[in-house]
């Protein structure tokens, strides 16, 4: 690689006469195949290296296959789990828990965020507790929930949902709280000169102004929900859901563990994309922040 770099570099010596015309022609010409498609080409190269590295690399390095299975083994495990272990059902159970945990955690986080954001006194009084709970490892509450709920399937699912609620709650509350606190006081004064009531100031200024921060909170929350549910299922020792497959993997082998991790990741990605989709619709008024500013809708 190092030797090839100098030849690829653009020559910096003074170009010969007529070079300017040549340069203009070169710029006007359609980009070369390589320039136009370098991103997809690199992506393909990296993908091939990744797949090949996983499939044969670990073996070549002497990593035993019961430590890290090959991709093809995970693939056949997928087929096996689909046919014999009711993979779809487990995935549905976990997805349901993620969805419910995320929704409840978000609603709770928003409610608390707006209440504390509108009442500085309450925030100051409660801030030590909020801070303590924010720092405390929320997933560590899982055993407590097991104690509360008991051992039925519904109880185990409730444990997973509750852990998710707890971990989703904080980033959303903190983001909303900060956003309400950061609303431009001049905007509130403007509404006040129109004789706005406290309620109108909330609905017409504070609430919409908090939307960007709320959505960053929801983005974080959507990924945390999967973590919460996974921990909840593992600690609860559930016999449904992807957590059950993870636990079964302890005896049934690494391919099942990897399979469960991959499906959990996919659930997280779907949740995250759903939030982004909603965000694009709600925050349509914001200037777009796309790559390279290609779609930026400039003012003026």
């Amino acid at each position: 690689m190092a030797e090839s770099t100098p030849t690829a570099a653009v020559p910096t010596v003074t170009p010969p006469a007529g070079a300017a015309a040549h340069e203009a022609e070169r710029l006007a010409a359609p980009p070369s195949f390589w320039r136009a498609y370098r991103v997809p080409i690199w992506s393909a190269i990296v993908l091939v290296l990744f797949v090949a590295g996983w499939e044969w690399g670990f073996r070549a390095l002497g990593v035993p296959k019961y430590f890290i299975p090959t991709l093809s083994e995970i693939g056949s495990e997928f087929v096996r789990a689909y046919e014999r272990m009711d993979l779809v059902n487990h995935t549905a159970v976990t997805s349901f828990e993620v969805l419910l945990g995320f929704a409840l955690g978000s609603i709770l986080g928003m409610t608390m965020g707006y209440i504390l954001g509108m009442s500085p006194t309450a925030e100051v009084v409660l801030s030590p507790y909020i801070l303590a709970l924010q720092i405390a490892p929320k997933v560590a509450f899982a055993p407590l929930f097991v104690l509360w709920f008991g051992f039925s399937v519904e109880a185990k699912m409730s444990v997973a949902i509750l852990v998710a609620v707890l971990v989703v709650f904080f980033p959303i509350m903190i983001n909303v709280l900060g956003a309400v606190r950061a609303v431009d006081p001049a905007m509130i004064n403007l509404a006040r000169t129109f004789n706005a009531t406290r309620w109108q100031i909330f609905w017409k200024i504070e609430f919409p102004a908090s939307m960007p921060a709320l959505f960053s909170g929801l983005r974080i929350g959507s990924t945390l929900a999967v973590i919460g549910v996974t921990v909840g299922e593992l600690v609860g020792g559930i016999n449904r859901g992807l957590g059950f497959l993870l636990l079964s993997g302890e005896t049934m082998g690494a391919p099942l563990v990897f399979l469960a991790i991959i499906v959990l990741t996919v659930i997280g990605i779907v949740a995250y994309c759903a939030v982004i989709f909603a965000e694009r619709r709600v925050l349509h008024y914001m200037p777009r922040r796309d790559f390279g500013g290609m779609n930026a809708q400039g003012g003026k």
């Binding site: 905007m187 102004a209 939307m211």
Partner: peptide, 13 residues
């Protein structure tokens, strides 16, 4: 009365 400030204070949404 109604006022107008240096900043337009238009609501971005």
């Amino acid at each position: 009365v109604a006022f107008m400030l240096q900043r337009d204070l238009l609501l971005p949404w």
